[in-house]
């Protein structure tokens, strides 16, 4: 059965090729898409139900039934050392899809010179395993199903 992956935030759905980082644009971590968030405080929610297998202030990786999904808030944001991000959960916690995990303010991150476009990745999946459910350019809400992993 296919797993639906939810947008972690409101924003515009973008193709990964728009992400100015080859690691994501070339799908080194896996296929997916990107969400361009509003420039105001937002809460990033869990894209799938599962266990938080990796958690950084700027990124969450959630694992369930052999599927893994990564949300990377902005690019190169590791260098901020957590500045501008608030974690609402801990690594190892179980979450339900749509549950709040990280608060951040893209306008602050962008003012600091970093891209805020947020890759949403089916980690180590094959490109053929994912089906996008909404076209690029669509404005979605947090919790809108944006792709499926077979």
């Amino acid at each position: 059965m296919a797993l639906q992956v939810l947008s972690p935030m409101p924003g515009r759905v973008a193709n990964l090729s728009e992400v100015p980082d080859p690691m994501f644009a070339e799908a080194m971590l896996g296929p997916g898409l990107a969400i361009d968030p509003p420039r105001s405080p937002v809460t990033a929610v869990a894209p799938i139900s599962g266990t938080i297998a990796s958690l950084f202030p700027h990124a969450m990786g959630i694992e369930a039934d052999g599927y893994s999904v990564l949300v990377h808030l902005g690019l190169e944001t590791v260098q901020l050392n957590g500045e501008g991000f608030t974690l609402l959960k801990a690594k190892g916690d179980t979450v339900v899809a749509g549950e709040p995990v990280i608060e951040w303010d893209p306008s602050v991150i962008e003012a600091g010179g970093l891209p805020v476009i947020t890759p949403l990745i089916a980690i180590q999946a094959e490109a053929g395993q994912i089906t996008q459910l909404v076209p690029d350019g669509t404005q979605v809400e947090a919790g809108t199903a944006v792709f499926e992993i077979a």
Binding site: S54, G61, K91, I123
Partner: peptide
Amino acid sequence: KSILGVMGLG
């Protein structure tokens, strides 16, 4: 061989 596992080490 698991990206999420390795990232999860932090």
